[in-house]
């Protein structure tokens, strides 16, 4: 019905990126700057370097370290988070230590990791895991605590075995929060992957860009930066896909609830994108209208990570 403005809006999005790229291309072609090589040179160097000569040498080790460290953090964070979420006493006991370790910037532990594991892959995996575990842990604790106690009481009075309680009640209820934490951790993980490879390393993306800089191979350095940027972008995108799939029930339920309110805004990018998903995070105990509107933004979820928590906190209200 209103296709014309929508196409216009769609094209508008590409205007600025195109202008920026073009601007840089034109400027760098004549600027003859040492630090900012021409776009075409970066492009050709990129093709030479990353298709696919250095992929197994630098990209794969980086990604596998990230996967190992991140996977470790997910396992430890979720397990410990459920345990701490269920027991108030354990939570209080662990609180000071968790708070301290969380506040400790992970890079500060790189020398410690080198001491402990040497310069190999293990120290990098350790740093990544240590830095990414906290958001997952804290979100899991919150997710488990947010579980309605009636559900647990119900499960107990029906004598549901604890394994089933864990798998069918606790985990699903906490999963939106767990995913929110995992998402935060993913970007931290990429950062730590790069940092850990910059110190005492023999390969990896971080190593590559730092070496290129030290060797004054500026176009190579730029291609490394582009690769890291693309990696971050792609992993983020993949994560959203996985999240949408795993939490489909969550979104589905939300979609039904918010159907009437959400349908018209689904396509109108401005309002839908502007959806203040954070409203619920900040005003979970605010008057009903806020929560209700936040709840109505259902289909927008594809781009909004913390919608899960939005949904949960607003569900009791609606």
């Amino acid at each position: 019905m209103r296709t014309a403005p929508r196409v216009g809006n769609f094209l508008l999005q590409f205007l600025l990126p195109a202008a920026l790229l073009l601007g840089y291309g034109v400027w760098s072609a004549q600027a003859d700057s040492f630090y900012f090589p021409p776009l075409t040179e970066i492009g050709s160097t990129f093709a030479e370097t990353w298709l696919f000569e250095r992929v197994p040498v630098d990209l794969l080790p980086s990604v596998s370290r990230l996967a190992a460290g991140y996977g470790l953090a997910v396992v430890v964070g979720v397990t410990a988070g459920i345990a701490l979420g269920l027991s108030r006493r354990a939570r209080l006991t662990a609180e000071p230590v968790v708070e301290f370790l969380r506040a400790l910037p992970a890079p500060a532990l790189i020398p410690f990791a080198l001491l402990l594991f040497g310069t190999g892959t293990n120290s990098k995996v350790f740093i990544i895991a240590l830095g990414t575990v906290w958001p997952i842990l804290l979100n899991t604790i919150d997710g488990v605590r947010g579980l309605e106690s009636q559900q647990l009481d119900m499960a107990r009075s029906y004598r549901i075995p604890s394994r089933s309680v864990l798998l069918h009640i606790i985990l699903p209820a906490a999963s939106p929060r767990i995913f929110a934490g995992m998402r935060t951790s993913l970007s931290i993980g990429i950062i730590l992957m790069v940092i850990s490879e910059m110190v005492a390393s023999a390969n990896g993306l971080g190593y590559f860009i730092l070496q290129s800089q030290r060797g004054f191979e500026i176009p190579e350095m730029w291609t490394g930066i582009v690769v890291i940027g693309l990696l971050g972008f792609v992993l983020n995108w993949l994560f959203l896909r996985v999240e949408a799939r795993v939490l489909f029930w969550h979104r589905g339920a939300k979609g039904l609830l918010g159907e009437s309110a959400a349908a018209p805004t689904a396509d109108a990018a401005p309002t839908a994108d502007a959806a203040p998903t954070s409203a619920a995070a900040l005003t979970a105990d605010a008057p009903t209208p806020v929560a209700a509107t936040a709840d109505g933004r259902g289909p927008d979820t594809a781009t909004t990570p913390n919608v899960p928590s939005t949904a949960r906190s607003s569900r009791p209200v609606s």
Binding site: T304, N306, P316
Partner: peptide, 17 residues
Amino acid sequence: MRVAEKVTTAPSPQPGT
């Protein structure tokens, strides 16, 4: 993509309190 941090760091309103 946007508000991931907020989830972990929003002041304190937690359901269940």
